[in-house]
Design a binder for these strands. Structure first.
Lengths: 129, 129, 129, 129
DNA sequence: GTGGTCTAGACCACA
DNA sequence: GTGGTCTAGACCACG
């Protein structure tokens, strides 16, 4: 179990992010129940109020719904997963492109730099530690 | 003159970023003088304390130096520009790769998704503005 | 038969309502600053966290914006007032109509009953007290 | 300073309201028997204690009476229905007027706004879609 | 001084 | 048990 929170983003949003990632990766399917606020709080080593805030945020975004007295569930329908995936992907990519452009890097260069980075990564992938 | 700050990152760090970008893009060369704190404050529509903090941060990072009574200058030597460019580029790329991996996207897919995104963007690319 | 109980309104939403009323009535104009979280908390006899929640909610609704370190301000532009007025008015009226219908009162009757009520009120309006 | 928040309406009072509505609409006549506490509890999906409290409240208000071993009955006489209708109607109307006044809307405007609202509602009766 | 986040603990209505 | 709200008190980054 890792607790390891970045210091920049609020914890409750980091939790939202990780849950969204799990939905996009298919670890939590549409219609499935999330861990209860209290369970998640213990598991994450975080105050229940913080988890509550994450859940409320996800509900506000229309990704999750709460059934009173029963728990919090991912919205039914595969569409929600596609929507999430697309939204998060686009967010990441456009942020990347914007940042690179601000450094004066052309669009062709972005791709080659990315390819170089990925190739370097392959070499010292696992062998070391 | 118009200043459109994101709400997420601290303003003083956003200012550091934009100045670093200008250095990397060659708009400010090694040895050149930055605008004074007061000028920059007025120009950015931001509190002088905030600019002061940005300058202090850049000095702490070894990118600029303050000469008493003269102002704040980018460190001499082209090496500083290369160092900055490499540092910021690597930071951006590794952040991008990490985020995409968290979505369960393979490294091959990253490149193709990026290419698609750039192609779509070409339509409203440069002709504008 | 539907049971459908309205959840009694949380304090933080009641506070949102009263602030919206003040905006609609013109007591707080576009661009003006709201009382600080702490001031409002003391003034309302409520915990600062609750006020914070009200402010966050209003920002989420796009009625208010926060400038860091400066305070919370009503969005610029008279449009926001018109939008608020229309939204709240419609809410009140439709609630009224719904309640009257639940009593089996026809739409024509609603108007005449309202007129009677207002006429009665005129007689003992101000002279008293 | 005092800030009078509306006491959020308890469920048992909301149940009282719905029963009163049914009496006013003539669905339950004077002298008729109400559902038993247990029936009503199951039917409403509410704790029997809560229903018990609603019945006690209605008895206190002189609208129903309890006959030991027989059940709970609406008081005899058409007058009770008239009394209820008037009380609830006045409550709804004065609440409406109060809310509209809080928005700074004049009494003349209230009527015209209500009429507009009712007219709009007529259109999307059936034809529209 | 400003808003934003977090913890700890409590109570509530609902199932 | 479930989520939702609220209080009390604390710390933070920002201007």
């Amino acid at each position: 179990m890792a607790t390891n929170f970045e210091t920049s983003k609020p914890i409750y949003m980091q939790i939202v992010d990780t849950i969204f990632q799990r939905i996009v990766r298919g670890e939590i399917g549409p219609g499935e129940k999330l861990a209860s606020v209290r369970e998640m709080a213990i598991h994450s080593g975080v105050n229940p109020n913080t988890i509550q805030r994450s859940y409320a945020e996800m509900e506000r975004m229309g990704v999750v719904e709460t059934k009173r007295g029963q728990g919090t569930f991912v919205i039914e329908g595969e569409i929600i997963v596609e929507r999430l995936r697309h939204t998060m992907q686009t967010e990441i990519i456009s942020q990347f492109v914007k940042s690179m452009e601000e450094l004066g890097i052309s669009r062709q260069q972005m791709i080659s730099r990315l390819e170089s980075f990925l190739k370097e990564g392959e070499q010292n992938d696992d062998p070391l530690k």
